[in-house]
Design a protein around this nucleic acid. Structure first.
Lengths: 101, 101
DNA sequence: TTCATAATTCGTTATTTAGCGAAATATAGG
DNA sequence: CCTATATTTCGCTAAATAACGAATTATGAA
């Protein structure tokens, strides 16, 4: 959870997550949305990956990233509970779908 | 919102919020829960105050801190929405209670 | 006023962080 | 094989961060 909150502490990274929310994107496409060097963005991707908030998928020379919503959700909910915020877990739409523990 | 997430990025500060969740406490009481210098804790309080996550109340030489749950809640919900997490706003228990905008 | 207590502020230090450009890596296509 | 493209890794720097102990401030009590 610490890694998640560390990852969320940077505005650029939160913005990346927001963009990925709409649809998976590759590093280049994401870069178009930011005025910073690609190498810098790459470092942000690494941090998001270490926090398990995004998933990388390489195809040819292109790496496509997609948001792992559930990980984000779990972290926020877990913390919310410890501070007594009533955020009811969204009901799972499907049961027994083999959600890894 | 940035200040809130910055504040939440440190484990000690998240722990402080969790402690304050149970009941308001003064700086000294809080300090007993941590193995770090009081001056360091004081800095953490300042950061939490700037993020508007806690409220300080001075009485005599003692400063009592209390958690501002609503601020935390709003920030988490606001962000959750931008990343498409369905965290329904908890229904307000009382309406028209003069909630400051 | 003087003393003790609670907490903050100050000055310093070590570590982490975000940023850059250049170099390296990997892959597809000619 | 050679070149172009996508992305990462490397080496660096400036700024932010968390930590400490010492000094300072504020208050209540003797």
């Amino acid at each position: 959870m610490n890694l998640v909150f560390k990852a969320l502490s940077d505005p650029t990274r939160r913005h990346i997550l927001q963009l990925l929310r709409k649809k998976p994107m590759n590093a280049g496409e994401l870069a178009e949305h930011f005025p910073i060097a690609k190498s810098t963005l790459s470092a942000h991707f690494a941090i998001l990956r270490e926090a398990d908030l995004i998933q990388a998928n390489k195809s040819g020379t292109v790496i496509t990233y997609m948001l792992k919503v559930s990980v984000l959700e779990e972290a926020l909910l877990a913390f919310a509970e410890t501070v007594g915020i009533g955020m009811p877990k969204p009901l799972p739409l499907k049961r027994a779908m083999g959600k890894a523990k």
